[in-house]
Design a protein around this nucleic acid. Structure first.
Lengths: 202, 202
DNA sequence: GGAAAACTAAACCCCGCAGTTCAGTTTCGG
DNA sequence: CCGAAACTGAACTGCGGGGTTTAGTTTTCC
């Protein structure tokens, strides 16, 4: 009776499969991942996978979407700090997140498949960069309201700030290139924060 | 006597094949490109391709490297302009380049294959982002020397500037998402330039 | 003009992999 | 405790694609 695939209800097996698939997809990419491989990794029979997911494409989509949904929102800020230390904290958190191996892998694989699965690209953007930007814009809006910053729209400032965090360090790490010695996360955050304060500080 | 594949000497057929391969790889990615497809597009027999290139991998590498080599260096600047207009010009050029469909396609495909072909990732970085950064750093160094800018190292400033150009607009375009109305290239450049001048202008 | 080198077209090998089937076993709800 | 549903494992289908071969045709260059 072809009980097909209604709203993805959580189940132990289902999660196991998703975990294995996530590992594989993020590690070697979509094309290089085989369903037999996923089955083996999940210690599950291939038939079971196809009982839970219609196709490789949809399994992939489910993996990405799950990871997007549970994207941990930024913890609320300890208020009342000045612009410099607030931005420092936010920037540090963001850059830490961006440089995590899983985050980078996710970025790579979504970028690679974005043409083939446009709706996935959208979901990724909205729950990742989009959501992050919104939260940072909110923080900046408050800094402006408190008179700590001035002369920009919050949204624009967030865009600039995030841009300054996602620099060479990010690009090189994402491409798997060795890092030149001195360029640490702290230094990158510091440079971005300093620039923001200089340009828009009171 | 296995006359294998010595130093890639340019030949008409060879270029034809590379052109076709480039189109295919950039359009649909590495995995989704078939050698039969490339042969058809180049109106060349598959055997000829394999007479020129050992394997699909090496053909791909040749495509990427060729595109890297001929990456057009920035034209020299009309000197003696102030920081604002100089940065405006440089920023505009860079962002125009970054948003070209071919550039984006290249970025996507290299990111996707970077894990599988690390040396390609390196070549790409060095001839693309790396070279660009160096040139912009040089421009900024001159602006500093002329006293137009101050308070940053050229290299760091270039990093920040490029970061501010490669923002939401870039990310969304790369993912193939529709652009929100107002965000034009000019606006993005303007914001980055203004921030630079505010932060580091004399 | 003629031989060597380049090229073509098409068949061919082979393998990996998406997806299916099925007979038998385990799990689980009532 | 029983029956249904979930799961297993392994075999099987089908196909697309990387790479090779061959026999014949064109190009090149002396």
């Amino acid at each position: 009776m072809s009980r097909s695939h209604p709203t993805p209800k959580p189940s132990a097996k289902r999660e196991t499969i998703l975990d294995a698939a996530q590992t594989a997809f993020l590690e070697v990419g979509y094309a290089a991942t085989s369903m037999d491989g996923v089955a083996a990794r999940a210690t599950v029979s291939k038939a079971t996978i196809y009982a839970h997911f219609e196709s490789k494409d949809l399994l992939f989509a489910a993996v990405i979407r799950r990871r997007c949904d549970r994207s941990d929102a930024f913890a609320p800020l300890a208020d009342k700090a000045d612009a410099r230390s607030t931005l420092r904290l936010v920037g540090r958190r963001l850059l830490d997140l961006l440089l995590q191996p899983d985050t980078l892998a996710m970025y790579r694989v979504v970028v690679a498949e974005s043409a083939r699965q446009p709706d996935l690209a959208r979901a990724f953007y909205e729950s990742g960069p989009g959501a992050g930007k919104a939260q940072i814009a909110a923080v900046i809006a408050e800094l402006i309201q408190r008179g700590e910053l001035a002369g920009v729209e919050p949204w624009q400032a967030a865009d600039l700030f995030v841009g300054m965090l996602r620099t060479d360090l990010f690009m090189r790490t994402m491409l798997g290139l060795p890092q030149p010695e001195g360029r640490t996360i702290e230094a990158a955050v510091e440079a971005a924060v300093e620039t923001m304060v200089r340009a828009f500080g009171r």
